[in-house]
Design a protein around this nucleic acid. Structure first.
Length: 986
RNA sequence: GGGGGAUUAGCUAUCUGGUGAAAGCACCCGACUCAUAAUCGGAGUCAGGCCGGUUCGAUCCCGGCAUCCCCCA
């Protein structure tokens, strides 16, 4: 340094400062940079090496398979990124966290998607195998698209070996689960009402129904004559003075129960009348009004609340004789008005209301879900006198042959009128399900289905639930209630795109063939050929000996399995097959999966192995918009993760924020409830990201000439215990951050990490430590202790900061790591990736809680001074804080004791060139006690501490901007202070 | 219709039976021009969805209602 910059106007003293230098950009340029970093990970085989080669235990977060259909949405992002944060943390902690991603590939939506994409003519000639081939191809295509999206988000997984529910080993394992349940006696065949379309002679799923607005049904009110009353009720009635009317044995002229139905054709299948046990019912005397024809009964039972309304509807005068709870009606028997049959009055469920009808519900277990469930409770048979085409069968007696959607209703209404059971008839408009393809009405019809008998292992399931840790804890109540109350699981579907139920029926006797031999045989065939084999081969090709010899007598079943059975078998098809932990360490899905995958997986695992497939279950809520509403196209509030990450058509309006901002969002919200997302939130997250990035950039930029090796080994690092107090405080803050963030990740409370990270970067680093550090870093000579000690801290902090953010901001963390300026210095060894460094730790020596109190005092003093400086700025008397000098005066006694202690602590520092109050306050001069400055610009007192602000004396040093009185004492540097001259002249 | 969850500053988040407390960001004002499409300082706003109960006292406990979300019917 010979020529004086002052003498050379083309140079300025700025060039003599140690300003930051780094190629690390202020902006992420995420669209280009993130894929580069991902390519780096791939080239290093980082995920593979860590997940397989880590020294720690195997950690299994088992992926719940998303459905292989449609574009990725923010719900996918929330789920997969949460999983990835947990996996990356586990990998950094040295665990072998292998993540096998999955897809749910079978089922109706894909089947329908394929069918919709075909011309009617094409569809007409479609074979099941053709359909399955197209569905298979479609599913793979969807999987590929979603996989690319997940990878772009930086998710680490076995992307080359995902599990798909359509893979042969998976299907084979699923058949194995089914087989074990069969052999354990948990699988049975039974009748169940399903949506049935007579026009297409097939069962329909809910998704295949539509509900036109203009449907009208011929509704009827019918009186069912009572045969017998339970003893207590009979006694009550006779006590009310009307015992005689309750006929015994004769149905004529006596008491009747009144029902209402919109499907008169189901009356031949009536097997009970259901009441709500909690509702009030009135037994009424019946008197015709006006011209109305007299009914055959003299007393009617109706819901008390509906009595008056029914008087109008039925044209009858109903005088209440006795009011009882529905529960008291249980045990009444009545005679079917059209058939020779006696049936009971039973207690139904809460579905029985007084909104319409009579409060007593006609119950035909073969033709309604509520009816079916109630019937099961009372052991009623599932009578279904309707064939595939919707024609009544011989079981319907005189009505056999009539069609339920055409002539049956009329004939039955006529018969009711003829026998005097018809109370009223009226057209009733309501929503009614139609076959979406034929546009014809559907019916409920009982069909043969396959069930898993939950009853057989309900207790075991409840015990398994109790052994699992549910997060949040309310999840346990939720699934427990569902499992306790649920009925048997109907696992058969009348569809083509799925795993077959491997059963044969005898062509003449109907006998079911399903045993260990056939199951093993089919399982082996599917393992080898995939489930297509079921459709490719005839019975002779599917049956094992000895049945194969008589193949012509057997017919293979056409049902497929419920897709929940598919995904519910993943513990067998994936976790166990791939050598992961079973039970898995963690399942993590949206809270809707209590009814879905958590439950189906639990049931199959308990049925086969007697325990849950998971040790812990973590659930998250749903992504909503900024106002807490569901995202929908019509509201225009949908956040497309692809646009968020890669930018929209107009990148000015929809910039490419990058995957890290999406990941930061996931970390920022409390996902135990529903989580909000919208443009405002994204913008804010982008600001937080920028703050973290710029903070890291500043750290990197000031390490450009730093060798992190200890001085003893030729480097620049100062031992921690020899650092100034300010630096020790910074390390204490860093240790505190590491400790709290480690705990946050342990509890999966990432939003706490998000808050702590923000506070660390903004307050501890940017506002305090780095603000004070500027003078040390820029002004001091490059190798001065004052600067090297600061760099020591920056280096320790930046590496740990990178590690702490790595599970969430994985790209930023790696980008920081790749830009560590001392990478490649001789003698410096550095892991290739931040993920190889391991989870950040802090030596115990950093944890010095006792530094917090005095530092807090001084920072409070700093705030007090700042307020006064600001008032000086407002009056125009000061600009930069370095234009000021400060006098601090402490009151005597208790009140100022903490501050006095803090100042004494600071004064006792071994490194007064760093630990001095003036530098900490960023002012040019500081005076403790003594006489006040001549011209005080501002003054304030707080808690016994008085500060006075005055214009700093001397002149501004052109290099360090401090105001000093020793300016101009060196001829070569007339505008510099003594300190700067010392630096420049060595 | 039933079950579950949410409701504190514009946003995200936090603590608490005692006149409550509340961070960061955003917004506003100012400084700097040696992190500059950056950085620093200051200020203000503002409150626990609504109604009722328990209590000497409730944001915090209980009940109801409203709005939103999930599941089921």
């Amino acid at each position: 340094m010979t020529a004086s910059p002052a003498a050379d106007p083309t140079r300025s003293y700025k060039d003599t400062l140690n300003l930051l230098q780094t190629p690390f950009g202020m902006r992420a340029n995420a669209k280009a940079r993130e894929p580069e970093l991902q390519a780096f990970w791939a080239s290093e085989h980082l995920y593979e090496r860590l997940s397989q080669g880590n020294p720690g235990p195997v950690f299994t977060l088992h992926d719940g398979p998303p459905y292989a259909n449609g574009a990725l949405h923010v719900g996918h992002a929330l789920n997969k990124i949460l999983k990835d944060i947990i996996n990356k943390t586990a990998l950094m902690q040295g665990k072998r966290a292998r993540f096998v991603p999955g897809w749910d590939c079978h089922g109706l939506p894909i089947e329908l998607k394929v069918l919709q994409g075909m011309k009617p003519a094409e569809r007409a000639t479609l074979t099941p195998l053709d359909l399955r081939g197209k569905a298979h191809a479609y599913a793979l295509e969807q999987v590929e698209g979603q996989r690319r999206g997940f990878e772009r988000w930086g998710i680490w997984a076995d992307w080359d070996e995902p599990y798909l529910t359509l893979q042969k080993p998976y299907e084979s394992a699923q058949i194995g689960v089914f087989g074990q349940m069969v052999l354990a006696g948990h699988i049975y065949r039974g009748l169940k009402p399903v949506h049935w379309s007579p026009s297409s002679r097939t069962a329909l799923a809910e998704a295949e129904l539509e509900y036109p607005d203009d449907h009208t049904s011929p509704s009827v009110f019918v009186a069912f004559p009572v045969e017998q009353l339970p003893e207590p009720l009979a006694a009550q009635l006779s006590a009310a003075g009307n015992g005689t009317a309750a006929c015994s044995g004769t149905a004529t002229g006596g008491l009747a129960v009144a029902i209402w139905t919109t499907t008169p054709w189901t009356l031949p299948a009536n097997l009970a009348v259901s009441v709500n046990g909690a509702l009030d019912y009135a037994i009424c005397a019946v008197v015709p009004r006006n011209e109305a024809p007299a009914p055959r009964c003299s007393q009617l039972v109706v819901a008390a609340e509906l009595r008056e309304r029914l008087e109008d509807t039925l044209g009858l005068s109903l005088t209440p004789l006795l009011t009882v709870k529905g529960a008291a009606l249980e045990g009444i028997t009545y005679h079917h008005p059209l058939l020779e049959r006696t049936s009971p009055v039973v207690i139904g469920g809460d579905y029985i209301t007084t909104e319409s009808g009579t409060g007593l519900v006609h119950t035909a277990p073969g033709h309604g879900v509520d009816d079916f469930n109630t019937g099961r409770k009372y052991g009623l048979p599932v009578l279904c006198p309707v064939d595939e085409a919707g024609n009544l069968t011989a079981e319907a007696g005189p009505f056999a042959g009539l069609n339920v959607l055409k002539d049956a209703n009329g004939a039955i209404i006529t018969a009711l009128r003829d026998c005097g059971a018809l109370l009223a008839e009226q057209a009733y408009a309501h929503r009614y399900p139609y076959d979406w393809r034929t546009k014809k009405p559907t019916i409920f019809r009982a069909t043969e289905q396959w069930f898993a008998s939950v009853e057989g292992f309900r207790e075991a399931a409840l015990q398994a639930i109790a052994a699992v840790e549910w997060l949040p804890a309310s999840g346990r109540n939720r699934i427990e209630a569902m499992v306790r109350e649920r009925g048997d699981w109907c696992i058969s579907r009348q569809r083509t795109w799925g795993v077959p139920i491997p059963v044969f029926y005898h062509r003449t006797t109907g006998e079911v063939l399903l045993n260990a031999t056939t199951l093993d045989h089919i399982q082996a065939l599917i393992a080898e050929h995939g489930s297509d084999v079921w459709w490719q081969r005839d019975e002779a090709g599917l049956l094992p000996e000895p049945w194969a010899a008589d193949a012509a007598s057997w017919r293979k079943g056409t049902d497929t399995m419920d897709v929940w059975f598919d995904s519910g078998s993943s513990w067998a098809g994936v976790v166990r097959q791939r050598g992961l932990n079973y039970p898995a360490d963690l399942y993590l899905e949206g809270s809707d999966q209590h009814r879905g995958w958590f439950q189906s997986s639990l049931l199959t695992s308990v049925a086969v192995n007697g325990h849950a497939p998971y040790k812990r279950v973590l659930t998250h809520g749903f992504a909503l918009d900024e106002k807490g509403r569901k995202m929908s196209k019509s509201l225009g509030n949908v956040v497309d993760p692809a646009v968020l990450v890669e930018g929209g058509k107009n990148e000015k309006q929809e910039p490419a924020y990058g995957a890290d901002v999406l990941r930061l969002w996931v970390s920022s919200v409390d996902y135990s409830a529903d989580v909000p997302l919208g443009p405002g939130i994204v913008k804010q997250l982008a600001d937080v990201y920028r703050k973290v990035r710029n903070t890291a950039r500043y750290l990197l930029g000031n390490l450009h000439d730093f060798d992190p090796r200890p001085q003893a080994q030729g480097g620049h690092a100062i031992p921690a215990d020899q650092l100034p107090l300010l630096d020790q405080w910074m390390l204490q803050r860093t240790a505190a951050l590491i400790d709290s963030v480690s705990a946050d990740f342990e509890r999966f409370e990432f939003y706490r990490f998000f808050q702590a990270l923000q506070n660390f970067c903004v307050v501890d680093l940017s506002n305090v430590y780095l603000d004070i550090a500027k003078d040390r870093l820029y002004v001091s000579a490059a190798s001065e202790f004052r600067r090297r000690s600061c760099q020591t801290v920056l280096q320790l902090v930046v590496e740990r900061l990178a590690g702490l953010i790595a599970p969430v901001l994985c790209h930023l963390a790696e980008d920081i790591w790749q830009h560590l300026p001392y990478r490649g210095l001789p003698g410096v060894s550095l892991e290739a990736s931040v993920f190889e460094r391991g989870w950040p730790t802090a030596p115990d020596a950093w944890r010095r809680q006792e530094l917090e109190a005095p530092t807090g005092q001084i920072l409070a003093l700093r705030a007090l001074v700042n307020r006064q400086l600001e008032s000086c700025r407002a009056s125009g008397s000061l600009g930069s804080s370095l234009e000021a000098q400060v006098q601090v005066e402490l009151a005597t006694g208790e009140i100022a004791a903490p501050m006095a202690a803090a100042l004494a602590w600071l004064a006792s520092s071994a490194h007064p060139t760093v630990d001095n109050l003036g530098d900490w306050l960023l002012v040019s001069a500081l005076q403790l006690g003594g006489d006040p400055p001549a011209a005080v610009l501002a003054e304030a007192s707080e808690a016994g501490v008085t500060v006075r602000i005055a214009q700093a004396e001397g002149q501004k040093c052109e290099r360090c901007w401090h105001y000093e009185s020793d300016i101009g004492q060196h001829a070569a540097h007339p505008s510099l202070c003594g300190r700067c001259v010392g630096v420049l002249e060595g």
